[in-house]
Computed example of a mutant assay.
Amino acid sequence: MTATINLATEWGRQRLVRAVEGNDVIAYPTEAVWGLGCNPWSEFAVDTILALKQRPMHKGLILVAASVEQVRFLLDPLPSDLRQRAEQHWPGPVTCVVPDPLEQIPRWVRGDHDTIAVRVSAHPLVQRLCILAGMPLVSTSCNPAGREPARAPWQVSRYFPAGIDLMVSGALGGARQPSTIIDITTGETLR
């Protein structure tokens, strides 16, 4: 059974930190839909999410961060014009596909790409998650491949009666659609 926590409590905050450190899968509300997240440097946790979603690794996953500073390590190796293109969208509901020339993000998150999709969220709960975790987190919609993303906790439980270790209580951010995805190298809108 999935444990539910509230980040307003000290116990909830401690449990979240232990979950990220312990390679657990977390379900949480984002700007528009419920998301699944984990420590991106844990191959075990990422593999668990991919298996739950029935999503092939080669497609890659998104990272979500609390601030530009949390992803500064990805931006610093880039030319200044590309850094500025990404930063102009954050915080907010825009995911930027940025080059990862130093391969700082593991292949199990990047998939078959030499880029990584990154969003700096404006959602207070998502920001809090990433601050408590001390790192950007994997963020992918909470649904099996081909199904509509969960928009309520009961849908999360129905989609995944097992496999999610922790559910963070909270409200969606009010957006109607998942984040826009922009390739900052080409300027192309991918979603």
Rank of each mutant, 00 (worst) to 15 (best):
residue 17 V to H: 04
residue 99 P to D: 03
residue 143 N to F: 10
residue 60 G to Q: 14
residue 156 V to T: 02
residue 173 G to D: 06
residue 62 I to F: 10
residue 182 I to F: 06
residue 15 R to F: 05
residue 44 F to K: 10
residue 15 R to P: 00
residue 127 Q to W: 08
residue 182 I to C: 07
residue 64 V to K: 10
residue 82 L to Q: 13
residue 109 V to S: 09
residue 159 Y to G: 04
residue 42 S to N: 06
residue 26 I to M: 13
residue 116 I to T: 03
residue 148 E to A: 14
residue 25 V to D: 13
residue 2 T to F: 00
residue 126 V to T: 14
residue 36 L to C: 08
residue 70 Q to F: 02
residue 5 I to T: 06
residue 155 Q to A: 12
residue 21 E to G: 10
residue 88 Q to R: 14
residue 31 E to A: 06
residue 106 P to I: 01
residue 152 A to D: 09
residue 182 I to H: 02
residue 68 V to F: 10
residue 9 T to L: 06
residue 147 R to L: 10
residue 163 G to C: 01
residue 68 V to M: 11
residue 138 V to H: 14
residue 133 A to Q: 09
residue 92 G to F: 06
residue 191 R to S: 09
residue 30 T to R: 03
residue 143 N to M: 09
residue 147 R to I: 02
residue 51 A to M: 04
residue 14 Q to G: 15
residue 30 T to W: 04
residue 122 A to W: 01
residue 178 P to S: 05
residue 41 W to A: 05
residue 117 A to H: 07
residue 80 S to M: 11
residue 97 V to R: 07
residue 189 T to R: 14
residue 95 T to P: 09
residue 185 T to P: 00
residue 26 I to G: 14
residue 12 G to A: 05
residue 40 P to F: 12
residue 76 D to I: 11
residue 24 D to H: 14
residue 90 W to F: 05
residue 39 N to C: 12
residue 136 P to Y: 07
residue 183 D to A: 00
residue 139 S to C: 15
residue 63 L to E: 01
residue 141 S to V: 13
residue 163 G to W: 03
residue 124 P to F: 05
residue 143 N to C: 12
residue 60 G to F: 15
residue 64 V to G: 02
residue 79 P to R: 08
residue 177 Q to R: 15
residue 38 C to G: 12
residue 139 S to G: 14
residue 28 Y to M: 08
residue 48 T to V: 10
residue 82 L to N: 11
residue 149 P to W: 04
residue 145 A to C: 15
residue 90 W to G: 13
residue 145 A to I: 06
residue 173 G to T: 05
residue 73 F to W: 14
residue 97 V to L: 14
residue 86 A to L: 04
residue 140 T to R: 15
residue 110 R to K: 07
residue 7 L to E: 09
residue 132 L to D: 07
residue 124 P to R: 05
residue 65 A to D: 01
residue 92 G to M: 12
residue 88 Q to T: 12
residue 144 P to G: 11
residue 107 R to G: 00
residue 122 A to P: 02
residue 15 R to Y: 08
residue 15 R to Q: 04
residue 13 R to C: 07
residue 89 H to G: 07
residue 7 L to F: 04
residue 48 T to M: 09
residue 62 I to V: 15
residue 113 H to S: 11
residue 57 M to H: 03
residue 119 R to Q: 02
residue 23 N to F: 09
residue 145 A to R: 15
residue 109 V to K: 03
residue 122 A to N: 03
residue 72 R to V: 03
residue 77 P to H: 10
residue 168 V to Y: 02
residue 28 Y to V: 08
residue 71 V to I: 15
residue 135 M to G: 11
residue 50 L to H: 10
residue 120 V to S: 01
residue 54 Q to W: 01
residue 97 V to S: 10
residue 144 P to N: 05
residue 123 H to Q: 06
residue 105 I to K: 07
residue 47 D to Y: 05
residue 10 E to P: 06
residue 7 L to V: 01
residue 191 R to G: 07
residue 172 L to K: 09
residue 186 T to G: 05
residue 17 V to S: 02
residue 65 A to C: 12
